[in-house]
């Protein structure tokens, strides 16, 4: 079998916290601890969890915006860091990012056209009228008008700005898009349009997505595979069906149980699907009844397969 498109191998990211007292010990925040993930071609992998669980840090490492403390990110089997690794320009053509707040990530003083064309010039792909054609083509693809290129970010609505954010990410024809909460700043009505657009683009351009989200209903609709993170570690991982129809780790179950779903609440039919059985004599790790301290060393645990491609973290 060929190497997966992207492989995150034993990734850890630690941050040093300031000392609490002048001579006290240095404290280490373990934001990401030994995360292993793979992204196959044409797939959408979602990372879910609440704020502070390390999902965005993991994504930033993929983008090369955060140095890992240990571990590797491999693209088609080759490491993205260290000797012989691709430079920043090459890397930009491998993976691009779509941010949560498109307004904060667009230059307010540049027209959309020049924002989009700048990367083409920087990478020596196209200039002048050819660049303009490419920009016009990309704007049409994301559902905007070619003449929008002459406008500034403030002239667009939130949904249109997110379309521009997607267009910007796609200009260099990357293989991977990292979507960081792509729809959480948008209204429900516009969310649907952007989600559909992302799914259409994935099909027509053969893209692979890593989506970071805390909105489980969106994740269920878009993902092929889902990884649930809790305090820096993956606690459950599997195909969308296994995770949503047999949620097994107590934390996954709590997440699914907290999604407010109108019909389920009104009919009283609210129910989290039954968990898959775990091997006898094993218990879940971490114990979610108490809030773990991310500066403590976690107890030894490992991801154990409980179904085809469906793994949960159990204590060793």
């Amino acid at each position: 079998m060929s190497a997966p498109l992207l492989e995150i191998r034993d990734l850890s990211v630690h941050f040093t916290l300031p000392r609490q007292t002048p001579f006290g010990p240095k404290r280490i925040l373990r934001a990401v601890q030994g995360v292993n993930l793979t992204l196959n071609e044409g797939e959408c992998l979602s990372i879910v969890g609440e704020s502070g669980c390390g999902k965005s840090t993991t994504a930033l490492t993929v983008m090369g915006l955060q140095e890992p403390t240990s571990g590797q990110v491999l693209y088609r089997g080759k490491p993205l860091a260290g000797p012989g690794a691709p430079g920043r320009k090459e890397r930009a053509r491998i993976a691009q990012m779509v941010f949560q707040d498109p307004y904060a990530s667009l230059n307010p003083r540049q027209t959309i056209g020049s924002t989009l064309a700048a990367q083409l010039a920087l990478h020596g792909i196209a200039r002048g009228s050819e660049a303009r054609d490419r920009v016009a083509d990309m704007l049409t693809r994301v559902g905007l008008q070619p003449d929008h290129a002459g406008r500034f970010p403030h002239e667009f609505s939130g949904g249109q700005r997110q379309r521009i954010g997607i267009a910007r990410a796609l200009m260099l024809d990357p293989q991977i898009l990292v979507l960081d909460e792509p729809v959480s700043a948008l209204d429900v009505s516009i969310q649907a349009q952007i989600i559909n657009l992302l799914m259409d683009l994935q099909e027509s351009m053969g893209l692979s997505y890593i989506m970071i989200s805390h909105d489980l209903s969106v994740v269920e609709h878009v993902s092929d595979r889902v990884a649930v993170m809790y305090f820096g570690r993956v606690v459950e991982e599997g195909g969308w069906q296994s995770v949503f129809q047999r949620p097994t780790h107590p934390y996954t179950r709590r997440l699914i149980g907290s999604v407010p779903d109108a019909e389920a609440i009104l009919t009283g039919a609210r129910r989290v699907p039954d968990p898959a059985p775990i091997p006898e004599g094993r218990r879940f790790s971490p114990d979610i009844s108490a809030r773990p301290d991310p500066s403590d060393m976690p107890e030894p645990s490992s991801l154990t397969e409980i179904g085809p491609g469906h793994r949960v973290r159990l204590a060793d």
């Binding site: 649907a192 559909n196 799914m199 609709h221 069906q241 779903d261």
Partner: peptide, 24 residues
Amino acid sequence: RGLLAARPRLGSRIAGQRGRLTEL
């Protein structure tokens, strides 16, 4: 009706299909 239809709802994706949503 549009607002209700446009929501992504947990448990509404059908196996083997892509979870396209109804737009408002």
